[in-house]
Write a protein that binds this DNA or RNA. Structure first.
Length: 202
DNA sequence: TCTAAGATGGGT
DNA sequence: CCCATCTTAGAA
């Protein structure tokens, strides 16, 4: 469960670090919130992927700077939300300093707050461990829209972490759905909370 | 302008 | 395996 007093909001400075792979790993166990008129939802991040604009063929911003990816070039601590396959809204956290296009894709979440609202958004029959077990359903359960891209993570969308950082066991793996990235598809840049049943299915 | 393809998910 | 669905990037 979520014991509020044991958590603190992650400051924007955290996201401005220069190692997106390290940040991706450190975000495992953090709690993501989204407050809307419909209500508050929140949950523990159990799966992430790192994308690096300068060295990574899988990254949308690899050797290009377009209208869609412009937000990735901003300083860390904003949302990058885009439409995938014309259907899904994928939520990313922009990292690094201005000019460096890095981001962390949030792939799966363990629901903690606002489960009824998540079920309303994703479909009544949803099992709890499938409510946000994939980047597409994370976007759906949390009610993200592409218009929120570039929103700062210090307002209606924010993250919290435990004050006394406990050792979190993290599993490392290849990223999903990036076969087009050739040799970079092999990078072990996906991170999961060890033993979590809330991760995306294979 | 035109078009192919995509950091997916759910159903058959 | 198949397909929904629509923006975006890059080509023409």
């Amino acid at each position: 469960m979520f014991e509020q007093s044991a958590y603190e909001t992650i400051p924007l400075s955290f996201y401005q670090g220069d190692d997106v792979v390290k940040i991706s790993r450190e975000l495992i166990g953090a709690v993501l919130f989204h407050d809307t008129q419909e209500g508050l939802v929140g949950g523990r991040i159990v799966e992430t992927e790192a994308y690096n604009g300068r060295t990574d063929k899988a990254c949308h911003a690899y050797h290009r700077r377009t209208k869609r990816t412009e937000v990735m070039y901003a300083s860390g601590g904003r949302a990058y939300i885009y439409l995938c396959y014309g259907i899904h809204r994928l939520f990313n956290i922009v990292t690094n300093v201005e000019g460096k296009a890095d981001a962390v894709l949030i792939r799966a979440i363990e629901p903690l707050v606002g489960l009824d609202l998540m079920r309303l958004r994703t479909g009544k029959e949803k099992k709890e461990f499938r409510l946000a077990s994939g980047p597409g359903v994370v976007g759906k359960a949390f009610g993200f829209s592409t218009q929120q891209t570039s929103t700062g993570l210090d307002d209606s969308i924010w993250l919290e972490r435990e004050k006394n950082t406990e050792a979190v066991e993290v599993v490392v793996a290849k990223r999903i759905g990036v076969d087009y990235a050739e040799e970079h598809a092999e990078l072990m840049w996906r991170f999961m909370l060890k033993g979590s049943k809330f991760v995306s299915r294979k």
